[in-house]
Design a protein around this nucleic acid. Structure first.
Lengths: 188, 188
DNA sequence: GTCTATAAGGCGATAGAC
DNA sequence: GTCTATCGCCTTATAGAC
């Protein structure tokens, strides 16, 4: 485990707090106690809570972007799909949902700067899934019932909602249903 | 417009507040100002905020249950689907998402009693959609790529996530993508 | 950089008058 | 039923010592 600066620790715990309880569900006090500093020290690195959430979304998006970039698009499409789905299955075991899935429900409480980043996160995933479906299209025996960009939106939405439901029900059913739909689409 | 008791007004505005800002995003003060009473009067009807949210979920679920019950299952399946989808399209125009979609992201901040009701809400929708898909199955030229109960979970999840995205992006794209998927499934 | 101290206000909730 | 008044605590944020 690498040693982290205070700023890095603050950001790391912020990711967890948001993914567990949302922007309105945690306080500077919660964060300060987790890291072992006083709340005034948080303001040194992140002057306002809006600054903190903005940096948290940037960091989270960057990590996911790297994960997507690292998937070799010359692999068999089902393998690419399984690697992608692994990102969601990993989250299922914890009590944390997608940071951007959480924050997008709190849209009306967040600044415009955060909206932009959240939109970018959605588009990044949908674009990647669209690419996967298009690479799979020539291998299919029948055409898609809905066009790849639309199907990508449906699969991504079902996965996000599946994570939320996984925490509510304590089962991975809905994530697996979305996963099956994606796999069926690329193998159809 | 029928005259409402104070209790009814409180519950009505609570539905809107939760659907806009979530359980952690509004206060007794917000609610009191909307209805024109003092916060102490809210405590007379709903002793704690947990009581308030519990009654809000009960009321919202009852309304949606009645909507589903009222859909004539002997109509053509595409017509049934369009009536169902109308519930989501209506919400798209406003800045309100599904109350249970909102609260399910706040699972970790809510009492067990609310979890049970949220689970019931999910199951009610998934059960209805499963029934619709099974009624459509004999009319299809090919079998479903995933079984009806799984497809029902995917469609419901995509619709819920679509409402959230509609508010973030200001477009109905993702709700319509989910709608297209449902319609394609019952007409396939 | 991190702290103590404090500001200025919001929070859910309760007691008791009317 | 609704109010006034208040409790005890939490919230984000800032000033200034070290």
């Amino acid at each position: 485990m690498k040693t982290q600066s205070v700023r890095e620790q603050l950001l790391e715990h912020t990711l967890v707090l948001i993914r567990r309880r949302g922007f309105n569900g945690f306080s500077y006090r919660d964060l300060a106690e987790l890291v072992g500093v006083k709340t005034s020290s948080i303001h040194y690195y992140f002057p306002s809570k809006d600054d903190l959430v903005l940096e948290a979304v940037k960091e989270y998006s960057a990590r996911l972007s790297e994960h997507l970039r690292a998937i070799d698009t010359t692999l068999p499409v089902t393998e690419q799909a399984e690697i992608y789905l692994g990102l969601f299955r990993k989250s299922c075991g914890s009590d944390q949902i997608c940071l951007c899935g959480m924050l997008s429900t709190e849209t009306l409480c967040l600044p415009e700067s955060v909206h932009k980043l959240l939109q970018g996160f959605y588009l990044m995933h949908e674009k990647w899934l669209t690419g996967l479906l298009e690479r799979a299209q020539p291998l299919r025996s029948t055409p898609f019932p809905v066009p790849p960009p639309r199907l990508a939106q449906v699969v991504f939405g079902a996965l996000q909602s599946g994570l939320i439901a996984a925490r509510l029900f304590g089962t991975t059913d809905r994530v697996e249903a979305a996963a099956d739909t994606l796999v069926a689409a690329v193998t159809g």
